[in-house]
Structures are given as structure tokens and as C-alpha cells.
Design a binder for these strands. Structure first.
Lengths: 341, 341
DNA sequence: ATCAAAATCCAAAGCGCCTTGAATTACTGA
DNA sequence: TCAGTAATTCAAGGCGCTTTGGATTTTGAT
């Protein structure tokens, strides 16, 4: 069923039917209702491609998720973020176009999306400290929102981020207050800006308390369970081993927990652990007393907000770049306790 | 840069340029090269929407991922599957349109996708034992491939699945061979067909060995870490507690491991655990001696194959329904050992 | 040199929608 | 009653591409 058929069926012109359905004022209310009823009965929806062509809007948003290599880790955060964004798009009649792209192909994918007019804007995932995608997207003139921030950017741009620096400073301070000094930071890859900012928070807390950082306690890598396990095993075997771990994700913490229990130690008693909790739905850390003390921030919520921000930008291209900094909530669980010598 | 501009620039008709770029034979090789060069220089790509409208093909595939309620668990398997599928689409010039949909909205989303002509076909995720989506998609005539199988379907349809029944039968048999009789099955929701089939495999092994199933040892729920922890804690506290766990996912097994170590027991010695391993990239279980004994099957690979199957079906709508059953590999890790009284 | 066949190229129609500008009808006040 | 205005409706053009059917040029064999 297309517009032509529908309008013939109704004995009206295509113009009138189109206007009736799109809420234009210059159509009689009675007619409008008649049209709407017929459209519903015939299960009529405007052909998306024809509509797009006529209006010049793709009614789609691109999400380009980078992976380093073909079979590399897909950041588990992305599914949750996308679940949030998808909610927003559904509400506004937009589609979500997803591409998982190897980093080396990213530029050509963005260019292609723009040239093909496949999307009205994109969400940039996993920004780097100094991310070439900003310049690229500005050059090709595709509206975008970054999930995270680009630390070294000179220009303004739309972003939404969790306050990584503050979260990790706060968490470090909590550990210091508990008497810990040997605090290992098990971080994500520090070319990624979120990890870099977390490290800064960690360092600031040490500086504020005039404590020295032990370089061996700093590590960064892709956030897998194995990484957590291996790093913690290694650190716990040291003569001067850490008494606390500050960990960038729940998944990594699971590996750390494995190493700790294998070493015969007790989380929350012998060793303290604080994680950042993105509130992934299959890792529920929200019990009355959560298993992990954590800095918490819903990444699904971030997805909703990022999508809203982007749609706003698309609606009004003249808008001054929007930014939004979400605060995390430090929640005490059973994985932290006072330092024991 | 659009076709009109490009053809004017070249002093050719739009017809010729279009044909040159689309590989039609009726164009001089010299001309074709000239056109291709100019197109590359001008970074010309056909407008996707215009192309779609003209050809009647959307050049997009829909993935509708169901969640029970708005903030419910997004199956972590989906991200990995989609990463595979996306590879295939990139290769063939298709886009991936993603919707996270509450179950109650699914029907309207499929109908809308079809009526809007937004996609050429869809992948059906997380099929139920008796899934209404098959009839729906057949009714609206949208090509589809199911990731998994619908147990009670009378009609033929395209699917790709892992041999869940055989995998869990084999795993159960391994445990029985090791002397275990009290084997707990920690399964996914058994309205979902994968979980139902796994349960059947488990039951068949028991029957083959003339063993009785203890009903208290069967459980099923959404696959979260917490579920694993709580269920294992509960079972281990029983007077007659299981000596082995057969677990539907890595994530759930992490919770079980937590419960086991909290009970002061040792995995692989006091208690055996076998998991099904979807080879999620952030849970690497592929060490020389993996931490978990597992039935293994790459869900990313399944994504690649499912996408190829669907594209084939779209290319040739007359094709007889294709099916593909992937076998898993039983790999011995350090989480299993002989039964100790 | 000639003519049919093959090789190139082109003009124009059409995909399904929105939107401009004009035409028709209904309503208002004098 | 009638012009003047407001309320409805419509015809037609255009978005950027593919494709049909036809026109033109080249080629090859006689």
C-alpha cells in the first residue's frame, strides 16, 4: 500500500493525504480522521526511502563501534549504551545503523556513510585522548555526539561523559582513608580517554595526600577477565604487593577476584577492591550490600541522553555544542575494608 | 557530489555514468576507467536512498533484539553475534539496522520495518520454543533467518544453530563418566529454545545411563552472574548437594565460582563445572588448559554465517529454506575432575 | 564502398514521497 | 446578494538514482 493507492482509495489527492498524515493545519479535521483511519486499516507507512529522498533526511543515526582487529574484543559497554540509544530513536522515528569497524577502516566508513547520505548523524564510541575522528567528522560535516571526551581537542563539540576523573579520585581517596597506600590501578588502555582520565583522578588523590605512586602498580590493557586475573596474580606474588585494587570494570574485577581467592586471600578483609560499575544488566551489583564497592553510573542512561543530544543537534544545526557531565555514585559494598598490615 | 554533477563534469549522460559504475557491459572500457577515476576523485557514492528507491532494495538488514522489559538484560551474546554479521554486511554493501525492542512491541516493529520498506530481511534473535514471530514474518513476507531454532514449528524456515542438545548431552556424559551423579543444570529461561534443547540433552544423558534426575537440581533463569551465585549458594547449602554444575554461560559460571569459593570448596577438585562457552571476546577461555571445561562454539562465527545465509535468501527468494547446524567442541579445562564422595 | 551487426551512448520515465503555487469551495460581513 | 477572505483541496515538479527503449557510431564482412 503506497500513498498513491491510499489516496485513490480515499478519492483524495496525494497532497491532501500526505498533509493529513503529517499533521499540517490546512486539512479539514473530518478529512484527517477519515485519512488516518484508512491508513491504519491498510497498515500504511510512508516508504522510508522515498520519504528520505523527498525530505533530504535519512531518519537514521550511525553508530560506528571500533575494534582494533577483526576478532578483537567488542567493548561490552557498547551493547548497553546502544540499548539506551535505541529507546530514544524508537520514540522519535529514527533508525539505528550499526557498524562494527576495524580501526583502520573507520575513516572510509564515516566518509561513506556521509557520502551515501545513509545517516543524519553519528555517535562516536570509545574516544581516544587525541582522536582523529573529530577533525574528520567536522571536515565532512556530519553532526556527531561523542560518548566520552577527547582530552586534547581545541575545538568545541558535543559530548556526554561520566566524570571519570572525579570518580577515580574519590575512590582512591576512600581507599587512602581506609589506610591503604599500596593501591594498584587496573585500568583500560590509556590511549582511550576514559582510562586516561581515570588515571589522572588516581594520581591527583595520591598527590593530595602526598603519597608516592608505585609505578609497578599501574597497568592498562583491554578490559577482559583474563587481564584482571593475570595482572592480579602477578601483583600479589610481588614481595611488596598491593593491599587494594582500583579496577576499571566489573569484568576485570571478576578476574581479580579469581586471583585473590586463588591466593587464599579474602576480598574486603585482606584485600580491598573498588570497581567502576557501568550497571551492565547481566552483572547486577545493586544488592542492599553490593558485592563490590563501586563508582556507579548507568551507561544505558548515557545512551538515552546521547541520542537525545544528537537528535536535538540535528533538528537545530545552529545549536552551540552541547555537553553533559554525569556524576557517578560511590557505593560502599563488601569488597572494601581497612588496611591490615 | 551527485550523479548529475558527476556526469556533467565528465560530459557524459547520467545513464552512461551509472552503468559504468555498476559494471554494465555496454560501456567502453576507456570511458569506464575515466568515470571510475572521476568518481573516486570526487568521492562520489550513490545516494543510498535514491538508489534504494530506484531499485526497490533497501540494502539493509534488520536485527530486532528482544528484551522483556525496558531495563531488562540485553543478552551479551548479541553484541558478539552482531559483530560477526556486521563483517558480512560490510563485505556486501549492506547496512545493519538495529532495534532493541520490548517483547510487547516486537510485532509492531516488524510490521513497521516491512511497511516502511526499511530492510530487505531480518535476523530473528533468541527464538522461543514456539515462536509467534515465524508466522508473523511469513505473513508479512519478510525474508528472515533465525539464530537458533523454533522447536515446535510445522513449517520450514531458514535457521542456523549450535547443536545445543548434543553439546549438553555430551557434557553431561563426561560428568557421568567422571563418576558424578548429582549434577545441577543451571540453565537459561526454558521458554527460549536454546535452553529447552540443552535441558533435553541433559535428560537424554541421564536416561541413557539409567540415572534419576533430581528435580531440585534443575533451574532456569536469565543468564546473569547473580543468578549463578544465588542458585549455587542455595544448592551447595542443601544436605544432598550437587557435586557438579552444568552451566549455560560463562557469566553465570562466574557467579557459581564465587559461591563455590565462598563455601570454601575447590573447583575441579571438590566440585566440577562445565560451561557452554560462546567465545565472547572479553572472556577468554582458550588458554592451553582453559579454566573451565566447556562446550565451545563461536557465536561471532554464527553471526557471519547467518548473515551470509540471509543475503543468499534475499538474492534468490525462490531458494529452499536453508539450515545449518554447528557442532560445539568439548574442551577439557581445569574445572572438572573425578567425583569425590 | 556498403550494409548489417555490434558497440556505445543518451533522453526520458519512474521509484514514492513532500511541497510549492494555484485552484476550488466555504464562510464572512456589508 | 456579492465581493473578499479563509479554509480546503489539488496538479505538478523535484529529490537522485536505475533502467527501458531508442539513437548514434564503429566494426566487420562482403
Amino acid at each position: 500500500m503506497n500513498l498513491k493507492q491510499l489516496s485513490e482509495h480515499l478519492g483524495l489527492s496525494q497532497t491532501t493525504v500526505s498533509r493529513a498524515l503529517n499533521g499540517y493545519p490546512e486539512v479539514n479535521e473530518t478529512t484527517r480522521r477519515r485519512v488516518e483511519r484508512a491508513a491504519a486499516e491498510g497498515n500504511y507507512r510512508p516508504n522510508l526511502r522515498a520519504m528520505s529522498l523527498a525530505t533530504g533526511k535519512a531518519m537514521a543515526i550511525g553508530h560506528v563501534v571500533p575494534v582494533a582487529h577483526k576478532n578483537d574484543v567488542v567493548n561490552p559497554v557498547f551493547a548497553e549504551f546502544v540499548a539506551g540509544a535505541s529507546q530514544t530513536y524508537n520514540l522519535h522515528g529514527y533508525e539505528l545503523m550499526l557498524t562494527i569497524a576495524e580501526t583502520k577502516n573507520e575513516e572510509s566508513i564515516y566518509r561513506s556513510l556521509a557520502a551515501k547520505r545513509a545517516v543524519d548523524g553519528v555517535i562516536v564510541h570509545s574516544p581516544l585522548r587525541d582522536d582523529p575522528r573529530l577533525a574528520l567528522l567536522n571536515e565532512i560535516g556530519l553532526p556527531f555526539v561523542v560518548h566520552g571526551r577527547v582530552c586534547d581537542s581545541k575545538t568545541e563539540y558535543n559530548w556526554i561523559d561520566m566524570n571519570n576523573r572525579r570518580a577515580f579520585k574519590q575512590a582512591t581517596q576512600l581507599l587512602i582513608d581506609l589506610g591503604h597506600k599500596k593501591i594498584a590501578l587496573v585500568n583500560g588502555q590509556e590511549t582511550l580517554s576514559f582510562a586516561w582520565l581515570r588515571r589522572q583522578g588516581y594520581e591527583e588523590a595520591f598527590k593530595d595526600n602526598q603519597l608516592e605512586i608505585e609505578p609497578a602498580f599501574l597497568s592498562s590493557a583491554a578490559l577482559t577477565e583474563t587481564y584482571g586475573y593475570e595482572k592480579a596474580s602477578e601483583l600479589l606474588a610481588l614481595e611488596k604487593s598491593p593491599s587494594a585494587f582500583l579496577v576499571s570494570s566489573y569484568i576485570v574485577a571478576l578476574g581479580i577476584r579469581r586471583a585473590i581467592s586463588q591466593a587464599g586471600l579474602n576480598i574486603g578483609k585482606d584485600i580491598s577492591v573498588i570497581i567502576h560499575d557501568d550497571e551492565l544488566s547481566y552483572f547486577d551489583n545493586s544488592a542492599a550490600v553490593p558485592q563490590f564497592t563501586s563508582t556507579r553510573s548507568s551507561v544505558r542512561e548515557a545512551g538515552i541522553l546521547a541520542a537525545e543530544m544528537l537528535l536535538k543537534q540535528i533538528d537545530d544545526p545552529g545549536l552551540y555544542p552541547q555537553t553533559q557531565l554525569l556524576e557517578s555514585h560511590l557505593t560502599i559494598g563488601s569488597s572494601t575494608g581497612p588496611y591490615k598490615a
